[in-house]
Amino acid sequence: MKGFSARLLIPVISLAILLCAVFYLQPRTMSYLGLNLLFNLAVPIALATIAQMIIMSVNDLDLSIGTFVSFAACVTAAFMPETPLLAIAILLAAIAAYAVLGFVITLQSLPSIVVTLGMSFVWGGLAVLILPSPGGQAPDWLRSIMTVKPPLMPMAIVASIIIALVSHFIIMRTTFGVAIRGAGGNGRSLVRAGWSLLKIKAAAYALAAFFAILSGMALVGLTTAADANIALRYTLLSIAGVILGGGEFVGGRVSPIGAVVGALTLTLAASFLSFLHISPDWQIGAQGAILIVVLGLRLIFNFGKRKGSAS
């Protein structure tokens, strides 16, 4: 429990500092509507980050998350309103494809980066086939979910909390979640304990695909339509979100709540820079600088902790 809170401390503090800065720069954001506008596009990013986090917890990396989310968005926008059964069938097939991917990657000990990079072209191609020109339509129920106005807190905040809690429960509290993290931490001992690494990784990939599909659907609910390139940025955003939220590339060390916080921080960083009127030429650099500062904080923090425990 102590390790858990320490891992979460830095992401939460970074988010709080950025939020205060944004409130100061633009007091208009300090309202129900303002918070919703600030964070609603973070909801699909948070879901994609959770998907990436699940892949990362088994020591793999998914470079196709962005195109896969785009693909899911295209399927949703093209088929969900008219032929929902077809849309669900395609999405289930996509989840199965991810499970097979996890299976093959483990069976042949293939580098996941190469396989998913290759798959990103497959998903991108399928997305263009399904929606050759930008368009489609968000189903009404999806649109109303994403624009619902709950009392007390705006949708974006409520959704983020739900995503964080649900994924925390799955990854940190269930046997299945422990197995996934174990596969990343020490796969061999897991096998010795009688688990099948193949099954665990296939299931982890399938679960990741499920969250990525939710991300695509949430995105369509917000934008009302899709195009084949809609979420390309999510690949790198999701990796940055996981790392920012206290996760690590190896060893099954991840934090679902941290990942959601990381996704929110990334979104907020972009708004912060835009409120500062920083020229776009500098924005990518400034965004990178924020990332480096947060990660630097973590290094210092970890270093201090190690020193503390050694003495």
Binding site: Q26, R28, T29, G34, L37, L38, N40, L41, P44, L219, L222, T223, D227, N229, I230, A231, L232, R233, Y234, T267, A270, S271, S274, F275, P280, Q283, I284, Q287
Partner: peptide, 17 residues
């Protein structure tokens, strides 16, 4: 910063704010 629709959507929402 990048030619991406999701980023521009966020930019427009910031302009509203």
């Amino acid at each position: 910063a990048e030619n991406q629709a999701t980023e521009q959507a966020a930019q427009i929402q910031n302009m509203i704010l």
